[in-house]
Design a protein around this nucleic acid. Structure first.
Length: 196
DNA sequence: CAATAGATCATCT
DNA sequence: GATGATCTATTGC
């Protein structure tokens, strides 16, 4: 198993930067949930109330409260009544920036991922797409609002690993501001939800 | 192979 | 009661 030996947990400073910067820097980082882990290969930035495509556009509601809260927390919501989607809350407390995790490269716990997604699913498809990766990792509403520093979900970096080439494209699957280039993909990764 | 309809529910109006 | 930051199956070239 190509599970990197020495990992460094990201701290709050990583997440309290500009949303766009966090989205870009998150590509290549490693998400761990229980026994499963994967390298992040695709993210999208959602900026806050000024971003019509963001949930925060509606202002503070019981659901989006965590978006406006302190950084380094997980925001999990149900999409289309079917799929859970995972976000990192970032920017200083009071801002509503967040980073949607869209695709992972499975590193560990692949057997459990298959158990949750179904046997016979190709590795490249196990965690390709925001709904797919949460199902594979077993992420749902109970992770909403948990800390990325001390909760069940953690994010690590691999010291010494080169930063990947990153392609920037418009965001996917939204109806407003579809042309804003806020999607970050590890260039050429077969694990991304679409070709770059 | 490309296009599209349907699933399904937490949250908001 | 309407609405999606989606995915999959199915239909039609």
């Amino acid at each position: 198993m190509a599970y990197p030996a020495s990992l460094l947990r990201l701290d709050e400073a990583f997440f309290s930067r500009d949303t766009e910067e966090v989205a870009r820097a998150s590509v290549g980082k490693i998400l761990v949930c229980g026994a499963s882990a994967g390298r992040i290969v695709e993210t999208e930035a959602y900026l806050g109330p000024s971003d019509r495509a963001a949930h925060a556009w509606h202002g503070i509601t019981p659901r989006t409260r965590v978006l406006f809260g302190p950084p380094a927390h997980a925001y999990v919501y149900l999409s289309y009544g079917v799929h859970w989607c995972l976000n990192f809350v970032c920017g200083p407390e009071g801002t509503a920036g967040c980073v949607l995790i869209r695709a992972l490269e499975p590193l560990a716990g692949i057997a459990s991922m298959r158990r949750r997604r179904g046997a016979g699913i190709a590795v490249e498809k196990l965690t390709s797409g925001p709904g797919n990766l949460t199902r594979a990792m077993g992420i749902d509403l109970k992770h909403n609002g948990t800390s990325l520093l001390k909760g069940p979900l953690r994010v690590f970096t691999e010291p010494g690993s080169p930063s990947p080439d990153i392609a920037v494209t418009p965001r996917i699957g939204i109806r407003h501001n579809c042309d804003w280039p806020l999607r970050f993909v590890a260039a050429g990764s077969p694990f991304a939800s679409r070709k770059s």
